[in-house]
Simulated assay, not measured.
Amino acid sequence: MGRSQETFHKKEVRNKKEKKKREKEAKRLAKKEREKSSNLDDMIAYVDEFGMITSTPPDPNQKQEVKKENIEISIPKQDSAEAPDPVRKGTVTFFNESKGFGFIKDSETKESVFVHVKNVLDEDELRENDVVSFEVEMGEKGPIATQVRLVR
């Protein structure tokens, strides 16, 4: 069927479709232009040597060379010489003789460690301000002092 035999309604529908196509193409081109005109430099952020976010790029003259052999990816192996001494010293800050428990303040870490009478090796009762040596183990509720001895 040729165009000369088209009805008015068919011509109108075809013209609307073509107009919609042109508008869509114009919108697409306008969007492309906006994307090009948006400044990419405004969106870039840099991190300086102190870990702060800045908008200025780093100075290439201050660049430091790093050898790939010096980069450690995993946890470094610890020497056995660096192992801390398991026996610690501390001061008894509180001890309840009737209930059989108390607390020792570690002289190195200054943390409070729970102590029970069953972990005391000496027959003497512990009293407040006594200096003791002990080992630390993790219990259900936190660190516990074991192998507790009075230091004379």
Rank of each mutant, 00 (worst) to 15 (best):
E140I: 07
E18A: 11
Q147I: 05
G142L: 05
S4W: 04
R34T: 00
P76Y: 09
E82S: 15
A83R: 15
M43H: 09
K20A: 15
P60C: 04
V87S: 11
D85I: 09
K11L: 11
K17A: 13
S98M: 09
P57C: 03
K110Y: 07
K31P: 00
L29H: 08
K110C: 06
P58K: 03
K31I: 03
S98L: 06
K31W: 04
L121I: 06
P76T: 09
K27T: 01
E140K: 12
Q62M: 10
D41W: 00
D59V: 00
K63H: 08
E82T: 15
N119D: 06
D106V: 01
D106L: 01
Q147A: 10
N129S: 10
H116M: 09
Q147P: 00
K16R: 12
P76H: 12
L150P: 02
E25F: 02
L121K: 13
K141S: 07
K11M: 10
R149L: 08
M1D: 13
I75T: 15
E108P: 01
F94G: 07
F50M: 08
E49L: 08
E23L: 14
P58A: 03
D79K: 12
D41Y: 03
L126D: 06
K67E: 13
S55T: 13
K89L: 10
K118E: 00
G142R: 06
K141C: 04
M1C: 05
K19N: 10
R88K: 15
K77W: 02
